[in-house]
Design a protein around this nucleic acid. Structure first.
Lengths: 135, 135
DNA sequence: TTTAATACCTATAAAAAAGGTAGGAATTGT
DNA sequence: ACAATTCCTACCTTTTTTATAGGTATTAAA
């Protein structure tokens, strides 16, 4: 399941994308109020998005957040990986968070090929859907 | 991610399928030992599988477990739903565990259609892979 | 230079879920 | 009667999720 944190991140990104044309940066408090997201929780989410160069931030009295990447280049797969970790359902088939299965012969394990298929099908959707598509 | 509980269930089912031809039922202790699954934990898993008519059990000294459904009719989607709940990544697109999204207009929400696609693609794999396919 | 409003940072905490155990009751073939 | 099993309820521990508290650093404007 997609976590609340991840849903909040997507909502915030959509909000920022819709209000991109504004002159000033957008306060986290505004996003929190408009999208009904706990303020302090949202701050940690926006910081993560800034750290991975999806947003840029400005400090001080007239500070706030802006998109750094354009909405059409922010894919759901990227946001979900950032917030929730792997897309894959097994660590041993994860592209970005690979970890070996304990006590399972990967060359013989037939589960592996099944969950590689699931991963590929899932990524073909999430890797082709951007924030722009959600507006 | 698939939980350990679910992996244990799949392993146990594969073990039972491989040893189907035996005269006697198979002890949970044997499965636990052979597949390296905590014994007491496995008992609760086998009970769930029996309650949903995938296994049948026999009590007493010569008791044990047997498959009730044939391996080719036990699909991963069924086992995963039983162990981990919904396949879908959002409650509002779950076929078997539907729950409305709070504070999200479902008719307008574009996330919904995206995650319906993910669900359908995932089910097309998991709903067509049986325990027999994993042996 | 003060002030006020913001982003930023670290630590903490409450709630839920995952993973597993304990102890014994009920059942059944020998 | 006995031994070995399934079955059942309750509990426990650790990890993850979902936040909150309290303050520091930064910046524009008064």
């Amino acid at each position: 399941m997609v976590s609340k944190k991840c849903k909040y991140a997507i909502k915030a990104l959509i909000y920022l994308a819709k209000n991109q044309t504004r002159d000033s940066a957008i306060f986290s408090s505004e996003i929190a109020f408009e999208e009904d997201i706990p303020k302090k929780f949202l701050e940690t989410i926006l910081r993560d998005l800034r750290n991975s160069r999806i947003l840029q931030s400005q400090r001080g009295k007239t500070g706030g957040y802006r998109l750094l990447k354009q909405p059409e280049h922010i894919y759901l797969s990227e946001v979900m990986r950032l917030m929730d970790g792997p897309i894959a359902l097994l660590p041993c088939v994860s592209l970005n968070y690979y970890a070996p299965c304990e006590g399972c012969n990967e060359t013989l394990c037939k589960l592996k090929t099944v969950f590689e298929s699931v991963r590929d099908e899932t990524l073909s959707v999430l890797g082709n859907t951007s924030i722009k598509d959600l507006i």
